[in-house]
Write a protein that binds this DNA or RNA. Structure first.
Lengths: 217, 217
DNA sequence: CGGCCCTTTGACGGACGTCAAATAGCGTGG
DNA sequence: CCACGCTATTTGACGTCCGTCAAAGGGCCG
């Protein structure tokens, strides 16, 4: 949990919290039950998503250690999202009211909060751009690079390799593609010597080329 | 500007502001120049979008009278977005610092702000779901319905017909499609008797069926 | 009248989805 | 340890939705 985005809250708030351990594939928050608690991920990976009745699903973000589920729901409850553990997850739940009271007495924390808000908004904008206007290759390459970047900030990368517990259906749901197509693209990436994936770990072999494929910057 | 989302700020804030008139097709805010001013639309339609170097563009939201450009950039500047007038637009620009000072002294306004934040976040989630997981027909139908709903809140619908100044390329950029395909889908919608569009105005002929096409609820 | 942008339409192509079958992992229980 | 059942991954054939390209017509304005 080093250098993560939500340190300013996880580390500093002396507020009632309770710890939980959720096994992989179990849901952490149901779309209805966004009521009074705000979870922060302490260990493991999770996904925050929205789903249609017929099963189509869109992952909005992956949650890594230190991440708040969404800063937008800090002050007001927000519904419709499902948060689901990808690996076994340890999380801590804060009660919203305590957190709110605490925050409103510290303007400089609100400043920090609004910075985080802007970041989150920017992420959302980029997601829309990706889904609306980028090709499958670009989307997947960008997803890998952005995860690598976030993991690096948390010291969760050694050399060029990192833990990578995502299933291809997670990647598919995050990029608006099908698992089959994801498999094909990842296959090409590996055959082209851009990355290597095995046993739940990913290595960036040719980061430069991967960035080119991602149209990165 | 009746019943619009940002009334709580546009109507109540006694803060320095300046009025501007921007002709159609002109840009209101450049991606770089998000510095110190926050525009609110008073009259006309605008679009807020992000673009890639090669010209691919994604519209993130349409701005109607009363709309703030984005609540996320109220307290902190945010860059990367372009705001562009669709019709002639009258807008008012507030200076961020004044607004900030004003808000921080009124906790109940901050509450209101955070409610708006949640709404905006929910919109963003739905946009991602649309772009990632819905068909062209669904996306277009939903866009029309959501605009109709927003216009209705502003008393800008008479009967079932409303001003509708969007060009098909706006719809395309908002839905992640091409203008050509938008034309085909709108053609089908009209031939199927769902809507009628002419001379920059739109009439809902068969709203029920349109909702079905949109998979609306 | 001429130029520009928008819209419509059709033919064609390509990116991605669907379906299906084969293989590989992986955890569980014997 | 093996057997098993489940879930992931891979691969190929095929289909479809949507994009591309091009041409023609319409509306608007100088």
């Amino acid at each position: 949990m080093i250098g993560s985005e939500a340190d300013w809250i996880a580390g500093t708030v002396p507020v009632t919290s309770s710890n939980h351990i959720i096994p992989a594939r179990r849901t952490i928050c149901h779309p209805k039950e966004w009521s009074d608690f705000i979870p922060i991920i302490c260990r493991g990976w999770a996904a925050s998503s929205v789903t249609l009745l017929d099963g189509r699903r869109q992952i909005l973000s992956f949650l890594l250690p230190g991440d708040l589920v969404s800063t937008a729901c800090l002050l007001e409850p927000m519904s419709g999202r499902t948060v689901e553990a990808i690996t076994d997850v340890t999380c801590r739940k804060f009660t919203r009211n305590d957190l709110k009271a605490y925050l409103f007495q510290r303007p400089q924390l609100l400043e920090k909060l609004s910075k985080t808000w802007v970041e989150e908004r920017t992420q959302a904008d980029q997601l829309a751009l990706d889904l609306g206007r980028r090709t499958a290759d670009e989307r997947i390459a960008r997803l890998i690079l952005s995860l690598a970047e976030r993991l690096a900030k948390r010291n969760m990368v050694s050399g060029q390799t990192m833990e990578f517990p995502l299933r291809q259906r997670h990647i598919a749901d995050a990029t608006g593609l099908t698992p089959v197509h994801v498999s094909k693209v990842l296959g090409e990436f590996q055959r082209a010597g851009l990355v290597e994936i095995n046993r739940r770990s990913l290595t960036l072999i040719n980061e430069k080329e991967l960035r080119r494929a991602a149209d990165w910057r």
